[in-house]
Structure formats: C-alpha cells, structure tokens
Amino acid sequence: MRFSSFQYNLRQGLKNIWRNKMFSMASVATMTACIFLFGLFYSISVNFSGMVKNAERGVAITVYFDDKATQDEIDQIGTAIMKRKEVAKCNFVSAEEAWKRFQSDYFKGHSDAAESFADDNPLADMANYEIYLKDVSKQARLVSYIEGLAGVREVHQSATTARTLTDFNALVRYISLGIIFVLIAVAAFLISNTVSVGISVRKEEIAIMKLIGARDAFVRAPFVVEGILIGLIGSIIPLMILAIVYNNIIHYVAERFDALKSMFSFVSAGNIFHVLIPVSLLLGVGIGYAGSRITLKRHLDV
C-alpha cells in the first residue's frame, strides 16, 4: 500500500470514529474497563504470587538421619538433595544447633529449665537438613525422593501449608483468567458492534468503492484502523489510570499499615508495568483488530 493510501485510510478510520462518536466512546470505555481490570488482576496476581513465594520460602522439609548414619552418608544425602532442581536452599542443622534453637524458642526466660539438662543433649539424634523449595507444589515429589535415600530415617513436611498455598495461588489465577476472558469477549463484541454501525453508515461508499475497482484490503483498511485505534486508546487510558492508582496504593498501604510492611512487600511499579504495558497494548490492538476483522468478514462481501 502506498504511503498516501495509508494516510488516506488512517484519516478515514479517524473519521469513522468521529462519525460514530457514541458507539466509539462506548467501545473505548468498555475496552478501558477491560484493560483496567486486566491490569488490576495482573497486579494483584503478581503481588499475590510474590507473597506466596515469600511464604513458600518459610515452608521447609526436615530430613532426619538413621542413628547409625555416618557423616559421609549424611554428606551424600545433602549432595543428592542439592542436585534437585526444585530445591532453593538446604541447610545442615547439627544436633547441638537444634538443641540451641529449641532452648531459645521454648526456654526463653526459664534458663534454669534448660540448665537442668546440663551437658546432656536431648536432641542428640535430631541432626537434620532443613530444605527450602523454589516451588512448594513440588514438595510431595521431593519428599518421596528423599525418603528413598539410604540413611534417611524420617522426613517432616508441612503438607497442608504447601497444598493450601498452591491451591490458593491457582484459584486466584483461574478466577483472574476467567474474568479477563469474559471481559475480552465483551470488548471484542462492542468493537464489532461499532464497526458494524460504521459499515452500515458507509454502505453506499463501500458499494461505489467496489464498483470502481477498490481492492478488498483498501475497503477493509479504514475499519481495521478504526478497531485498532479504539483498542489502542482503550488500553492507553487504563494504563495511565493504573500507574497512578498503583503507586498511590503502595504508598498509602506502606504509610497507613505498618504491620503489613513486615509481612510482605509490594512488587515495584516498574516491575509490574514492564510487563503490563506491552501486554495491554498488544491486547488492546489485538482485540480491536480481531473485532473489526470478524465483523468485516460477516458484513462485507469483500
């Protein structure tokens, strides 16, 4: 297509939007709502995933050894565990360290109770590996692997916590996807409606164009431009709103709810928008393009 034809079709696309102001505005508004909600769910999902990851880091598997296990065997178990992809960290906790931790956790302020044990370590057989996972959903598989290793007496896991976190994360993701899918369908439908109105308004012009030798692509172009522009505008507006809202919420929560700050940290706006901007623009333009193309196929015999 010539540059002058491209300019012409761009102008015609803008004229279409202007001619059907009300429908165009409705489409832009719906697209704005869709992309805004998409951005909102994405931000929530990313932050929640971050929180889950944080929580997962606190969920450990504890591996205890056979009484007769030698240091060599214990080292071999450690090496085998570290080789696993799902393992983020594996700490060796000696029997002495385990006893020290127990004392600090349970005998705080009652040092006399701890002293009654003198040099006797009641946790002498509780040397262990503390394993932290990259992905808590892989916990069951890792546990069964470790249980099969020679020299392992017992493996403790917090199965319920792991399952709950995994399930909850999946639930949020499914709900987000479901809502986004419905919104995308609504947006595509509205854009299709706007383009349909445009086609019916320009029916005579299209008929003349075809009679005097316009190619199909030339007839379609202004409507495709219209759909893409609606999608583009409908994704830029919510991105701007989201940027303002997200930053304000982070600051507000950080200032007002100090306790929450220690429990989790928000993903930075930069990290969120690094993904959200290209995805939203692509989504907006894609829905606009698809909406207009589907309508053209249905209403135009070109």
């Binding site: 010539r2 002058s4 003349i208 009679l211 005097i212 030798g213 030339f218």
Partner: peptide, 28 residues
C-alpha cells in the same frame, strides 16, 4: 460506470468525489 441516481458521496465536495475514484485505485 454512471448511474441514474448519480451515487455521489454527499459528505464530500466535487473535487473529492472525483479524486475518490483515484484514491480507491491507490493513485499517487
């Protein structure tokens, strides 16, 4: 082709109506 009811684009002037036929075939 020429028709009984002229089939001109009512929102465009005379020049634009004639130029339209050339734009449609992507003339420079």
């Amino acid at each position: 082709c020429v028709f009984q009811n002229f089939r001109l684009l009512q929102d465009r002037n005379v020049y634009e109506n004639v130029a339209f036929a050339m734009r449609v075939i992507e003339a420079g």
